[in-house]
């Protein structure tokens, strides 16, 4: 039983692995990190503070999504598995909402 289960897991894994874009993802991660560092360096044209925060949050979300999708293989897993981290994100949304509400009305 366990043997058949392993057999289901194994075939074609090598084939799929070769096609996965690990190096292009790495290049994007490195370039985006460089952009993040560049826009926070002094001496460059000053970007408005709130705009900079929005840009930085978007850039880090792109990086995190790439790592989760490709390096953590969530793109290649059965769809339902993504519900687990999404449930975690839903809980984070509740926490952020609660914290924001208490900051707005201390």
């Amino acid at each position: 039983m366990a043997e058949t289960a392993v057999a289901v897991h194994a075939p074609g894994a090598g084939e799929i692995a070769r096609k996965r874009p690990y190096i292009p993802v790495f290049v994007i991660l490195a370039v985006v990190t460089g952009i993040e560092l560049a826009i926070t360096q002094p001496g460059l044209p000053e970007i408005e503070h709130s705009l900079r925060i929005i840009v930085l949050v978007i850039l880090s979300t792109i990086k995190a999504s790439l790592v989760i999708a490709y390096y953590m293989h969530l793109r290649y897993e059965p769809r339902w598995l993504a519900l687990i981290p999404l449930a975690g994100l839903a809980l984070v949304a509740v926490l952020v909402t609660a914290l924001t509400a208490t900051v707005a009305h201390p």
Binding site: A13, G14, A17, R18, R20, Y22, I23, F26, L29, A30, T33, V67, Y70, Y71
Partner: peptide
């Protein structure tokens, strides 16, 4: 980030045996 790439390459390597 580099360590994440080497980690995923390690998995790809053993998937090929």
């Amino acid at each position: 980030i580099c360590s994440s790439v080497t980690m995923v390459e390690a998995l790809a390597a053993i998937e090929r045996g």
